[in-house]
Design a protein around this nucleic acid. Structure first.
Lengths: 245, 245
DNA sequence: TCAAAAGTGTTTTTCTTACACCCATGA
DNA sequence: TCATGGGTGTAAGAAAAACACTTTTGA
């Protein structure tokens, strides 16, 4: 169920309208809906992408929006973001990072919705990935200009936080296959940061983090000298998921 | 009006109860209240302090809590935090930083409340400061052990963010009188960071920021060699307030 | 003249950046 | 043998940390 549907239904609901007219001083405090929006990043063709859905609000016809939903009364805020991710992608072993809460009165045309933004990083080519709708598409972040609601601003805020976090914590581990070359990792970092990196300095910096273990395997199907494959240490990844340690 | 009062009133409201029992699938999404909690920091006696209020919820009798309130339906989230600050302290020229949104189902004993935490820094000795209630008191952060709700965790989260921000932006300007010595500034930083700093390195670092202008005045009423007084440049402070630039 | 803090520079270490050559592989 | 990226080390510069002595003031 899309957030737009629900909110539209709510604001069209005569029961609710009359309650609003009543302006019961207690009830009116419940006239704010709480939602989560998930900025689900992926990585493909050396580009950072984000999973968007065609908006079905009239006001935003032709525009895309983030994946979100209203938070259920008996559901933790964080749990709501996991649910959205799970329902939309089938993935459930992914970390979500709360970024910011957007609460302007007029950010949603159909009613008052305060929304907490989370970002997540998933493997576009994971066999577990199971996108639930034809309306869902991966969009290159660089090409995104206008989105429904304030979702462009939400993405920008999330990218900013993502950029701050990738050098501190191995959060990107889901964006690559299990085994990858250092070049692939560097290209990923360059895509996220939007800037080229020096190869030797990058390798030094990554080596210092001790996030990776080097395998006794080489790249295959490359037309040049194959690089050694690496993988993220389970330990490093677990601490990234739980507390970015 | 305290948030506790409102929520208590709401959960005791028979109108609301029946609505909840009805479980109208639309209405139930409004059963989440949205609030803000303000972590208002001050500085006195070389200690970082925070403004707390005695909780009047039975469940938390004897405990203190943060200043917060429900967000009004026609009020921006940020505006709600400014309103709480203004109503409680009389101050309105202060910057507030959103930190995190806390949304566990059971964080509030009387009902579902999702709360966005903000921190702010105010001058305890400002003549504008006008604390509106005898239940409000400044508490040394170091001595705080247990608070109502999850407010201890909220404070800890805000302190962490504050510590990250003070070296990047001149956010602390409200914690000192207009004119102050570099020693006073350093003691403030030490109180916030909880660690001693090297005097020469601290001065070098602050000088590089170009936040301060040196005045042709000296400290008075000190029993030792008086230091030069400084003040924050209006420019630096304004950019800190608006976008921490 | 003493106590207390002001004021000030240099050295060391650490981190960051810039930079170039030979190597292994497949086409 | 060529094109492509793999793999590696060092020197210079910038930032951070450690560290001590002289000066000014009031008591």
């Amino acid at each position: 169920m899309y957030i737009e549907h629900i909110v539209k239904a709510m604001t069209n609901n005569p029961l609710l309208k009359s309650a609003a007219v009543e302006k019961s001083s207690h009830l009116e405090y419940f006239n704010i809906a709480v939602s989560v929006d998930c900025v689900i990043f992926g990585y493909e063709d050396k580009e950072l992408k984000v999973l968007l859905i065609q908006s079905d609000l009239e006001e935003f016809s032709g525009l895309y929006s983030l994946l979100g939903d209203l938070v259920k009364p008996d559901e933790d805020l964080d749990a709501a973001s996991y649910r959205v991710l799970k329902d939309r992608t089938g993935l459930d072993d992914v970390f979500l990072q709360q970024v910011h809460t957007f609460g302007s009165v007029n950010r949603h045309p159909s009613g008052r919705v305060v929304s907490t933004a989370y970002y997540s990083l998933v493997d576009i080519n994971s066999h577990k990935l199971n996108i639930d709708s034809n309306d869902l598409h991966w969009h290159a972040v660089k090409g995104i200009k206008k989105l429904a609601f304030d979702h462009k601003q939400i993405i920008d805020t999330c990218i900013k936080m993502l950029r701050e976090q990738i050098m501190e914590h191995p959060v990107v581990h889901n964006l690559l296959p299990e085994k990858f070359s250092l070049r692939a990792l560097q290209e990923l970092y360059e895509a996220i940061l939007g800037t080229p990196l020096d190869r030797r300095n990058f390798r030094k910096k990554i080596a210092l983090k001790s996030w990776l273990s080097e395998l006794d395997e080489l790249e295959e199907d490359v037309t040049h000298r194959p690089g050694k494959l690496h993988k993220f240490k389970t330990k490093a990844v677990k601490s990234a998921v739980s507390k970015k340690g």
